[in-house]
Design a protein around this nucleic acid. Structure first.
Lengths: 147, 147
DNA sequence: GTATCTGCAAATGCTTTGCACACCC
DNA sequence: GGGTGTGCAAAGCATTTGCAGATAC
């Protein structure tokens, strides 16, 4: 999925947001965001901690959990519940998309279906409501797991 | 949401399915199903164990987990991951539906759009996957909250 | 300087598993 | 009677929390 911003632009937004809240920045916080940006996929907290360990002196798993919670709350990343293992995270600065999740191996596929998007708008209208956002997950048995 | 079957009919299906697999029935297994049928809502494993305790001699929490896993796999019930706490279960014998949720007042509207259902099947197929189930929530500002 | 952030280890919450006994077919 | 099912207690994971020391502003 293509990106909407450069990593540097996102980090600038992060720094500004931290400053405005009177918080303090840290290398670890930026690293978590950078790792998610570079990977482009959905990573588990464990995987993120591993990646940072490679790139740098590292971040403890508990810090990664704390940082992820903060970054998600601030809208820099978004979490996704899987059926296999725990939550996974991805950078929020991507084009809108929905998810297909394999119930057996946990693989995640991103997709957009314009027709469904249009129908969702219609459904909301039919009930006199204004559509703000949506969350759609298709749970499947993927190609690999079927063979 | 209205029910499609009586409890007795579901229990009959369960007994048949158990027989065909060469398994053995148990009071606890039927109780789990009965509790979910009667409640009509989403219950946690803990709540289910509590309910059975009241109605009967009870079932241990670990058995409830085992029974829920079996019943879900066999399609008698369906699990739902919540944001806080663990999984919750509901009887599968309800009409399928999705949810429209108002971000302001929290109102929940149930709906089904056959066209979207069809497209979801198509999307999964396009990726070579077999659709098992889906979860779709439309977040809106409802009619009342807009005026 | 001081409030926030970090790492560690222990605690927590939900779920699963090993084992001995109970029960259904 | 033999194979399933059950309850109990212990183990397993993912996640959270308390605390002492490190660090950013």
């Amino acid at each position: 999925m293509e990106r909407l911003e450069t990593l540097e632009a996102i980090l600038e937004r992060l720094r500004k947001s931290i400053r405005e809240k009177g918080l303090k920045n840290s290398k670890q916080r930026e690293e978590v965001l950078a790792v998610l940006y570079k990977s482009g996929t959905h990573l588990s907290p464990e995987e993120i901690a591993q990646q940072i360990k490679l790139a740098d002196r590292g971040a403890s798993l508990s810090s990664v959990y704390r940082l992820l919670a903060y970054l998600e709350q601030e809208g820099f990343i978004s979490g996704l519940k899987t059926n296999h293992g725990g939550k996974r995270y991805e950078i929020a600065s991507k084009l809108h998309h929905d998810h297909i999740i394999c119930l057996e191996c946990g693989e995640i596929i991103e997709f957009v279906d314009e027709e469904i998007e249009r129908l969702q708008l219609e459904v909301a209208q039919k009930f006199g409501a204004k559509l703000i956002s949506h969350d759609m997950r298709l749970f499947v048995k993927c190609e690999k797991c079927s063979s």
